[in-house]
Each structure stands twice: as C-alpha cells, then as structure tokens.
Amino acid sequence: MNRFLNPLIVVALWPSVALAQTPVWNQVGEQAKNALQIKGDAARGAAAFVPCQGCHRKDASGRTSGAYPRLSGQHATVLIKQISDFQSGRRINQKMEPFIGEHVLNAFEIADIASYLQGLPISATNGKGPGSGVSRGNELYKKDCVECHGSWGEGNAEKFYPMVAAQHYRYLLRQAQLIRDGDRRNSNPDMVKAIKPYRDSDLEAVADYMSQLAPPDKK
C-alpha cells in the first residue's frame, strides 16, 4: 500500500516541490540505470510480458480506442525509461500500477520485456485520427516536433525520444495534453516548451498527423 500512496503524496506536493527543485527529465532512477545496462533476453521477455497482454494485447498492438498504447516496435530504451518512471512514480497510471510495480518486475524483467517488444512488428491498423487535421498537423509537426520525433515519427533510441508514428490517435492526443498541461511529470522540458502554446485544436491536428504516419522501417 505504501508504494501506491507515495506517488500520490508526491503529486499532491508537486507544485511546491517543482519550485524548489526541477528534476532532470531523463535522469533515470536506479531501476532504469540497471535495466539499461542489462542485455535483455527477448525469449524471457515474451514470458514476462504475459501479465501485460490483458490490456496491451498479445501482439502488443494496444487498443485502437487509445485506452492502451501500442508497445510493439517501440525503442527498448524508451520502454525501459517509461516503465521505470511508472515504478518510481514520476509518471502515474493507476490502472497499470498493480501489474507493473516493483513488486512484480525487476530490472532484468524490464530489460527482457523491452528487448522483446522492440523486436515485434508494428501493426498499421492503429486507431487513426479523423484525417481532417493532417495538413495543418503536418505544418505544426515540421515546425515544432520533427527535430526530436523525426521525419517519419521514428523517434530516437539513444535520446529516449519515443516513436510516435502509427500510435493510436486518442492515446497520442491524451499524452500531448498531459505533457502540455504539466500532468506527465517525466516529460522533456524542451518538448513542454514547444507544445505549451498549443490549443486543443492544434493538438488534435498534430496527433491526427502522427497517427496517419506509416510504421517506420526498422533495421
């Protein structure tokens, strides 16, 4: 119970803490540091991923509704960082907490799962936006996002920038809103700066655009 409460308390105190000390967005915790140094084993990762399948699906394609993101094909580094951030409470999701906390996943299992997921094929039948925002979304993306998330939405493994292409529209939109509004605490501050001035309609357009991008070719 303690582990579950702590993040909530931290969040309640967040505004005052933020003034005192701004954490470095990619200053990863012990767990992630360890996991990043381990060479993940994809076969073991497949078994460790079983408890995740009920939400993220067997093929890790998530849900087209956007309730659960696609994880297949995402960079292992990004996955390790996000999982560790959930464990440490830097990123909060109560629905997932009971299945991903430190009580069930250690650094080895995180590395294994990440290695397994990175190697899975990416489905192109993701939940797409309405399509009406694509041209405006394209403009915004080229201006503010391409530098980090890449021309094809492929992201950057070394820098922990997530692949955003072919992700579910509703998930992208929700995350973009959370990041803009400061509710996803592990976000990159430069990304927050870029997205801060966006109105909801801008976010819808750029999420629409990203959701229509074809799955990037991965070596």
Binding site: V50, P51, G54, C55, R57, S65, Y68, Q94, M96
Partner: peptide, 11 residues
C-alpha cells in the same frame, strides 16, 4: 477499458 479490468485471455 473504463474501469481497467484487463482481458482474462491475456493471462
């Protein structure tokens, strides 16, 4: 999805 019950088939 609303209440976060995972699909039983997953496990």
């Amino acid at each position: 999805e609303e209440s976060g019950v995972p699909a039983c088939i997953g496990c």
